[in-house]
Simulated scan of single mutants.
Amino acid sequence: MNGLVLVSPALAPQAGSQDISPVPWMITLPSIVAANYERQGKLTNESMVAVIDYTRGEYAVDLMKGNSDPAATPRLVKKVTELTGLDPTFVKQSGGRLETQAFLREEFRETGKLGSRYDPNVTAYDPFPYNPTQETQDPILLSIIAPTTTAMVDFVTRTVGWKTDAGYNALSFDVNRMWDNSGRNGAFSGSASATDLRVAVATDPKLRVVIAHGWADLSCPFMGSVLTVSQIPPMGDPTRVQVHEYPGGHMYYARPASSLALRKDVMEMVSKH
């Protein structure tokens, strides 16, 4: 069986405050809108089609126009405010270019909470709500470190039977600081992964790929994969590489319905061999 299932891959860069390219903003906007739609109970594949079309169409055009068209930014600010449900002043001050961490603080500011970049609809109280920058860890990471550490230590010492005095770090910031994100020849690692994927598809004409994302994942936004896959040239069956999205965030498969939907899509891919 020649098949790949890529779960929440980072195939493209994410938006940051210093980005001047329109692409990073295009990558994160749809996931922010998806989180808003889910809160309203109207997140569906059909409702997101219009969001994706707007993002790669009018939104991209207005971003690229920038100050060359005085009407471009006000136009996209109005539309982004409508799609996200965010405070109009915040969207205007952002120029319709929503930085992830700023959004996660702003969305729940009135409740004194923070959203998680892994799933914006998972929140926790912000212990420093008046600071100009976020001073605490991501709500999901902060809440899972203790239970995952306990579970892993129990598994290693009791189930595996390996006795050691060494500590176990569920999330090591020392290791994280040493992570090389430069990728191949200085390129962003996501770009290198996209290149490898394209070469693999070209090399093996029987290879099929399912790229799976959570709609509201801001850690590895689905739109990055959508834009990346759309640049892969036709190589036989155009459905060989598919991007599928499911309700939820980065760990969307923790939701039974999303997990079953993913299994259905993977089994469909397998059945074509």
Rank of each mutant, 00 (worst) to 15 (best):
M235E: 11
L141V: 10
A10S: 06
R255Y: 10
T44G: 14
T195L: 06
S143P: 00
N131Q: 10
R39S: 10
V199E: 06
I20P: 03
I52C: 03
V153N: 12
T133L: 15
A212V: 08
K79V: 13
S225N: 05
Q137W: 07
F155Y: 15
T89V: 13
R240D: 00
L142D: 07
R158W: 05
A50S: 09
K206A: 09
S21L: 06
P247M: 09
P70D: 04
T203G: 04
V209K: 12
F222W: 13
A257V: 12
Y168K: 12
T81P: 12
L83G: 03
W25D: 02
M178T: 08
L114C: 05
V156T: 09
L98T: 05
Q231I: 01
S230P: 02
Q93D: 15
G190T: 07
I27T: 01
M235C: 04
I20D: 06
G183N: 02
A71I: 02
T149K: 14
T148C: 07
G249M: 09
D138L: 01
S219F: 06
M251L: 13
K65M: 13
A170D: 06
S225K: 03
R97E: 10
M223A: 15
E38N: 09
L141M: 09
G249D: 01
F222S: 14
L260Q: 14
H244K: 14
R255S: 14
D138A: 05
A192Q: 15
A15F: 01
T111H: 03
A12V: 07
Y252M: 03
K163A: 14
V270H: 13
L171A: 12
Q134P: 07
I232R: 00
C220F: 05
N36Q: 15
E245Q: 04
D174Y: 09
F90P: 10
F108A: 10
G224C: 04
P256D: 13
G95F: 00
G186N: 06
W179C: 11
K79D: 08
D180I: 07
L262Y: 10
G66H: 10
L197Q: 02
